[in-house]
Design a protein around this nucleic acid. Structure first.
Lengths: 243, 243
DNA sequence: TAGATTGTTAATCGATTAACAATC
DNA sequence: TAGATTGTTAATCGATTAACAATC
């Protein structure tokens, strides 16, 4: 009983159209979400989005847990922190779960972003669906290279990096996306501080510390992932498969 | 007593020049490295590389742990799995630790790679230092788009994607790097299977399962990182700062 | 030597697993 | 109803912290 469609299947669904948490019954969710559950949240999000978009209405702990590579028991423990109840004998509503995870993650809110670095990496991210799928609206792109200024990246004109602070202030930018070289990265983070930027998403090789930037900062350490791969390839972990 | 240079400081140091594990005394390292330690290994690697390149010879558990954001106690527990001993009263040799972590991760070995997708993302990765810093040699780049074939990416000529399997077999390619669209990603993984490719590093939005590819597979889920950032920005985790 | 810092043991904490009664 | 599956409790496992004797 996989595809168990009820009424109309949402065709052009966007997570931002979902009912807000306040609109739904609250289970009086336990306060703090534990580290371990937090780490799994983005995977819950992706898997539930997949199920939702495939018009699957219900899912059992057994099935969903196998998608995640965890035990059904563990999944049911996780559910304590989700704002959605299951139904004994039937399972969980995919939509309720998806809504709950989305709002828990804060992904159902809209955010604005500015990007520093209009090179290959910046272009790749700006052109992908990653930003819009999570409610992030790229409002400005900046670079120091004169050759790039005036061109467009994913439809957004490239501006002189010197204009970054003013632009952030004027446009209420929430997120600074750093796609430039390590040297400029630190400077960009400094420039953005005090402009109202509330978070930094950093792709440069220069690792930024939230303690220094003063705002939540997420470093995308691509190289770490390559090292994990090489470790797995070395065959040293005879235990279970990593996730 | 930070910079405590002894004799000559290695100028043009490369992790691949380090003495092999076999050449060094073995502490009879406990068999399996626990999950938690494994997750920290890439960070150990980066920090130790930084210290090493800054010519810092010794480091105490107290200092190194603060770089990692863990307790000194925890760090000393981790050391059980490292093939390097500290010296009571003084600390650890940065070089010995760096060597140990490098060989544990398998990063001190050389690997060959082929990349599928010569777009912005592929170009960005190929042009970065990420690959060569970890002993990965990009031998071929492939794309389906005729317009790109014949051009070069980071000095490597772009070939027709149809040639991928033969190329991998002929050149003993270890790692397949996937930088193409989700649709082609699955196909690329299939094409590479049976060619001797021993690992897949996947940047596409299509999540590959190692169970299906049959080889260690690392998915770089960039979007997950953005979601974590948004979660942190929501201020819901009043607990401690994430790492 | 005296001070510093490791290596290790024991205690605590958190996360996962197992099991089953509640109930849809 | 009968079968399925949740919600929850208790048991187990693993990871972190604390403390201190060993020793450089």
């Amino acid at each position: 009983m996989k595809k168990d469609r009820e009424t109309e299947a949402p065709e052009d669904f966007d997570v931002h159209d979902l009912p807000s948490v306040a609109e739904r019954r609250s289970k009086a969710t336990p306060k703090t979400v534990p580290e371990a559950v937090l780490r799994r949240l983005p995977r819950y999000f992706r898997i539930l989005r997949g199920l939702f978009n495939a018009d699957i209405l219900r899912v059992s702990s057994d099935e969903l847990s196998s998608h995640l590579g965890i035990t059904a028991s563990q999944l049911r423990q996780d559910m304590k922190y989700f704002d959605a109840e299951g139904q004994r004998g039937y399972g969980y509503s995919v939509k309720a779960l998806y809504t709950s995870v989305s709002s828990l993650l804060g992904v159902s809110k809209k955010h604005t972003a500015a990007m520093v670095g209009a090179g290959n990496l910046g272009s790749a991210i700006a052109s992908s669906m990653i930003l819009e799928q999570r409610g992030v609206w790229l409002k400005g792109v900046f670079d120091v290279k004169a050759a790039l200024i005036g061109k467009t990246v994913a439809g957004v004109p490239v501006r002189d990096a010197a204009e970054l602070p003013d632009f952030c202030s004027a446009n209420n930018i929430d997120i600074l996306i750093i796609c430039c070289d390590p040297g400029s990265a630190e400077r960009a983070a400094e420039l953005a501080s005090g402009t109202g930027v509330r978070g930094i998403w950093n792709f440069s090789q220069y690792e930024l510390q939230s303690e220094k930037t003063g705002v939540p900062t997420e470093n995308v350490c691509t190289g770490d992932s390559l090292m994990n791969l090489i470790y797995e390839m070395s065959g040293k972990n005879e235990n279970k498969t990593q996730i």
